[in-house]
Simulated assay, not measured.
Amino acid sequence: MPFQPWIDIPRWLWGDVGPWLALAVVLAFVAVVLSPVMRRLGPEMQAWTGAYLAYLVAVIPPGSSLVRFLLLAFPLAAALVGWTRSRLWLAAVLVAGVGGQVWWVWTFWQLVPPTGWPP
């Protein structure tokens, strides 16, 4: 079922608030794709990113492999660079990225096979 895992898995992980969190993430990606920074990359890059993200939401369940699949949405990184005009914003993005990696590794260390399920 297309899109169904984006409702079921967040609900399983975080309860009734989970689907709303997933919706917030999807809406954030839509906002980035429709942003002026993405528009400056050209219609091809904007269309590719939007179509590829829609494909991922339709056919890939949210989980640990999604990070790897997002590598093909590389124009998102270009949009992020376009937003980092100030050094303060760039430092905040770098701190958030490093903090996210630490959280990701810590979460995987907590898994106890076979009952553990990667995020």
Rank of each mutant, 00 (worst) to 15 (best):
Asp8Cys: 01
Arg87Glu: 08
Pro75Arg: 01
Val17Trp: 09
Leu13Ala: 14
Ser64Ile: 10
Trp117Ala: 11
Met38Ser: 05
Ala24Asp: 11
Ala91Gly: 05
Leu27Ala: 13
Arg85Asp: 12
Pro61Asn: 12
Pro75Val: 06
Gly63His: 04
Gly116Pro: 02
Leu88His: 12
Trp12Gly: 15
Trp6His: 13
Ser35Tyr: 00
Gln101Ser: 09
Ala22Pro: 01
Val105Asn: 03
Gln110Tyr: 03
Gly63Trp: 03
Trp117Phe: 14
Asp16Ala: 13
Phe74Asp: 00
Gln110Trp: 02
Pro36Gln: 12
Leu53Val: 09
Leu27Cys: 10
Pro113Thr: 03
Pro2Ile: 09
Gly82Phe: 01
Val67Lys: 04
Ala77Ile: 06
Met1Pro: 15
Val57Lys: 04
Val112Cys: 01
Trp104Ser: 02
Tyr55Thr: 10
Leu13Trp: 15
Val17Met: 05
Leu34Tyr: 13
Trp104Ala: 08
Leu56Met: 11
Pro5Ala: 08
Gly82Ser: 12
Ser65Lys: 15
Trp20Glu: 12
Gly116Tyr: 00
Pro113Ile: 03
Ala31Ser: 14
Ser35Ala: 08
Pro36Lys: 11
Leu76Met: 11
Pro119Gly: 15
Phe3Ser: 05
Glu44Cys: 14
Phe29Val: 09
Phe108Pro: 01
Val67Asp: 09
Gly82Ala: 12
Thr84Asp: 07
Gly97Pro: 02
Leu80Gln: 04
Asp8Phe: 00
Pro10Met: 05
Trp6Gly: 03
Tyr55Cys: 15
Val25Ile: 15
Leu41Gln: 10
Leu27Asp: 13
Val59Thr: 12
Trp109Glu: 14
Val25Ala: 15
Trp89Leu: 10
Ala54Asn: 02
Ala51His: 13
Gly50Ile: 03
Thr49Tyr: 01
Thr107Gly: 12
Leu76Gln: 03
Pro114Leu: 00
Val32His: 00
Ile60Cys: 08
Leu72Val: 11
Leu71Thr: 13
Pro2Cys: 07
Ser64Ala: 13
Pro114Phe: 00
Val17Tyr: 05
Pro19Asp: 07
Val102Trp: 13
Ser35Thr: 02
Leu70His: 08
Val98Lys: 06
Ala58Glu: 14
Val67Leu: 15
Val32Asp: 03
Ala28Val: 06
Gln46Phe: 02
Ala78Leu: 00
Gly116Cys: 05
Val57Arg: 04
Ala79Asp: 01
Trp103Tyr: 14
Pro10Asn: 06
Arg85Met: 08
Leu76Trp: 00
Leu80Gly: 05
Ala28Asp: 07
Ala24Gln: 09
Val26Glu: 08
Pro43Asn: 11
Val26Leu: 09
Pro5Gly: 08
Ala91Phe: 10
Arg87Phe: 13
Trp106Met: 10
Val37Lys: 01
Phe108Val: 07
Leu27His: 05
Phe3Glu: 06
Leu27Arg: 04
Leu66Met: 12
Phe69Met: 11
Trp20Thr: 11
